[in-house]
Amino acid sequence: MSRRRERIDRGIKVRADDIYALTSWREMLYLAAPRVAPVLTLLVVGLAAGPYWQRVIMTTSMFALLAISWDVLAASGMVSLGQALFFGVGAYTSGMLNHYFGWSPLLTIPLAAVIGGAISTLLLLPVLRLRGLYFAMVTLIMPLIIERVIEATGIFGGTEGISGLASLPHRLVELLVAMVMVWVALFGLRRLMDSDYGLVLKGINDNDRSVMSAGINIYRRKAEALFIASSIAAFAGAFMTHAYMFVGMPVFAMDYSILPIASTVVGGVGTLAGPLLGAFILVPLSELLRGLGGLRIVIYATLLVVFIVGLPEGIFPYLKRKYTQFERWVEVEK
């Protein structure tokens, strides 16, 4: 006799037959809980927290947007090492609109998301034909170039940046806008990627030649995906500009490129919810470790390695599996 772990999928009935779920409260709760619970938890924690941690939640939300944006790009066959490009372009666009035209942040942030997305897409349009590492290298270099251009020519406030920008009306408005945007991006993009439109994008990632031979213009599809993803990231940049009431060269910093990737790897690549979860673990963790001084980075990096080695699939797929499967040990005869 030996023991074997048996796994039974408990979600199959509800997921296979949507209408069935509506016949039972338990089934509805089973489906709704994993979506509603995080939204409510974040809201309650956000409102109950002090100003400092509210600020952390806000920043984390923006990193979560960057990470979700990265995941959408990666799922469409574009590995980006330069989320800072989208973030920075959005940040500067919003800053300029506010500084030169005096428009309210409530107008400049959405505008900067669209314009920033468009500028980023145009900048990368010539290299959409590149795949994998080659595309990644260009996205890595792009923000560095822009940073140096600003430094060398002194445009857009040069090395000083532009300060004294308008902020959002109230701290709580800021917080709520950040949260709403995170959930809209997550659920909206998840729906998009599960639709037939997203299916084609995933197809490009798997085998672009096959998609071409289906009569689909993959460069156009990639450009569209790039616009969607970079708009999300540009929104984050624009939002942070008004949160700090300042925009300057640091918006093109490496942090904005690397942390989203780390969040996605920790949370689970290709899941969209994973990157969000990853960001909400890594960013607050970094804040918690702030008291440790010089050892902070060492411990932070070690924890990152532990996550990656211990759960290579990512936290979200792990949690999802635990949620959708009964597991039990059964005796089996050898």
Partner: peptide
């Protein structure tokens, strides 16, 4: 034969079925 690995077999055909043609 390189399919769209992530997708279920029948969803592989949704890609050509999404073609403008």
């Amino acid at each position: 034969a390189k399919p769209f690995y992530q997708l279920p077999a029948y969803k592989n055909l949704v890609v050509p079925l999404s073609s403008p043609r």
